[in-house]
Design a protein around this nucleic acid. Structure first.
Lengths: 333, 333
DNA sequence: GGATGAGACGACAACGTTGTCGTCTTAGTG
DNA sequence: CACTAAGACGACAACGTTGTCGTCTCATCC
């Protein structure tokens, strides 16, 4: 179907190798010969076959694999964007797949990507065991993890958000505004970022001599509805919290809904910024971070590994920034 | 570095071809032989090389190329998600790139994807000329366009939103609530969807015998700030509009800002749903559509083409749905 | 005019896999 | 026991490209 270099060579009356030289801009071809070849190329609509090229050449496929949970989720799509930007600079393509947090699917994706001989792997790992990756890594596939670290046993770079610090700054902000009874909504304890953010909450309270009241902590709400219910429950307590810290944007929105419904002046600071946070009925104070930057940093690390740089495993911690918008500054009743 | 089938064969004491048979689950291998081979495979950490496989075999790479404007934009990331879902079912990988609406980049991407021998192409085309694609299409690369059609000259499938119908339903909704002076904010006229939505606006007015007042139509605002400024200008008119129809979610948000700032009760219906539209100070009535569905439908069409089905070029029109939330139902002053 | 060398180009092998076909073993049959 | 056929396995070529090396042409120089 598609013409090969051999076809071009026949058409132009030169050898296969000469076509290769022209296509790759090598030296040692007379201009008139090159022109004949180029004419044949456009006449036939020839396109160099990168598959064959990767096989024959230095075995670089100029591609990298990206495994995230779900592209439709803005957090991950921004990561993907950051990765794309760096990949573009290095003339690499991104082959991506969504794991949907399913360890089996994640494993299948990574395996398939290795079979495709991607030059490197960028992974937001699920909670599962990743030791199956070790052979692949030993075999020379570079890998960088994002957002959550893999097992200890896996010596690879990882780029994380400063979850503990970010959460602490959120809770300290609430404390600075006079709050003492501060609730914490965190996601499932199995999720690394949820654990870390909860830890930041604890640290902030402890640093200010406020005892942690476990009745104000809710681990487990995983979506907007769950967070809304959990918050409603907290607000209905005899001695309700005057402020809430939420561990991610789903939870923030759920808490917001419950607070609006209850009609209280409960303060709120949420982890993760989100679009329109400033346009809501109550503009939301958040701990912002930059997923695209995470993608970029991870991709840059990966490219350095792919170029054979051999430093010890890096652990990059990206800073967060508290964005004050109103919901976190109301004083306790 | 990575072991090949030859290495496995040597290790297992069998021939190359026998390894190939085991790896591909072909018949005609005795169980004990297969086991020897499998042991060698895990001992060496062998992974079949899909690059070589694609080269030798039926020349299917089991991959498809996706060219969108920007993954970080929820509209496109949802398209990507829909594509991914279908790709997964067909055991295909998605190689994606962002054009950032730059025709040169788009062209480069498509060319590179063809060089990688993707089995098919999914493209949200930019405004530029796409005739350069014709040779690729003739050469057998299947392609399906999304959101915007390519030139007439290109005979390929395309999946679109019902822009005209959606816009008409929005404007008719406003008319039904008593509005006669309805403004229209549309994006740059060069953008297909902007033109079509503007056309829907015109049709709705005409169908109800309301003359189009060009002083209420603003073509050109392209971002939130532009839309905000344009709306402020409209509201400052001697005889201001009582309602606004906005052609996409950026423009909706800009208009919303201006209306909030002006403190008027101007009604608003926007094209595109967006997250938290129901949580804003004024919940926004929108014309919703389903980008993920567009991705799915396009990918399904592409897969049928890739499987060699030969029907005339399809033009799929996806329906929209008016979601009533409050901003579009206030009567004229 | 013959030696020299640079420049242009071609022949061939190799990348790792799979399709084709041939060979060898073994069990079954008369 | 000889013959057959099926089953198991191996040798070889090919996919489209690029690296290596060899050959041929022609201008230059003594």
């Amino acid at each position: 179907m598609r013409p090969t270099m051999r076809d071009v060579a026949r058409q132009a009356g030169v050898s296969l190798k000469t076509v290769s030289r022209v296509v790759n801009g090598e030296v040692g071809v007379r201009p008139d010969t090159a022109e004949k070849v180029n004419e044949a190329i456009s006449a036939l609509g020839f396109r160099r076959n990168d598959i064959a090229r990767a096989l024959r050449g230095g075995k670089r496929t100029r591609s990298l694999g990206l495994v995230i949970k779900d592209v439709a989720n803005p957090f991950y799509s921004q990561i993907a964007r950051g990765v794309e930007e760096v990949a573009r600079l290095h003339d690499l393509f991104v082959i991506s797949g969504c794991s949907d947090e399913d360890p089996a699917r994640e494993r299948h994706l990574i395996r398939s990507l290795c079979e495709r001989r991607v030059d490197g792997l960028l992974v937001v790992p699920s909670a599962a065991d990743h030791r199956y990756l070790i052979p692949e890594l030993n075999m020379g596939t570079a890998a960088v993890f994002m957002d959550r670290p893999p097992e200890e046993a896996i010596r690879a770079d990882v780029v994380l958000i400063d979850n503990v610090g970010g959460a602490r700054s959120a809770v300290e902000h609430l404390i600075a505004h006079g709050h003492r009874r501060i609730a914490c909504l965190a996601d499932l304890h199995g999720i690394f970022t949820a654990r870390e953010r909860r830890r930041g909450y604890d640290e902030a309270l402890q640093a200010h001599g406020i005892p942690v009241d476990e009745s104000l902590v809710r681990l487990g709400p995983h979506d907007v509805a769950g967070a809304e219910a959990a918050t409603a429950e907290l607000l209905a307590l005899g001695d309700p919290p005057t402020a809430v810290f939420t561990g991610n944007n789903r939870l923030t929105i759920g808490a917001l809904r419950a607070i609006q419904a209850a009609g209280t002046r409960t303060a709120l600071v949420g982890f993760d910024d989100f679009e329109l946070a400033d346009m809501l009925a109550t503009p939301v104070t958040v701990v912002a971070h930059y997923p695209a930057e995470m993608g970029r940093r991870a991709a840059e690390l990966l490219c350095r590994r792919m170029d054979g740089e051999d430093l010890p495993p890096q652990r990059v911690l990206l800073p967060t920034r508290l964005i004050v918008r109103g919901s976190g500054e109301s004083p306790p009743l």
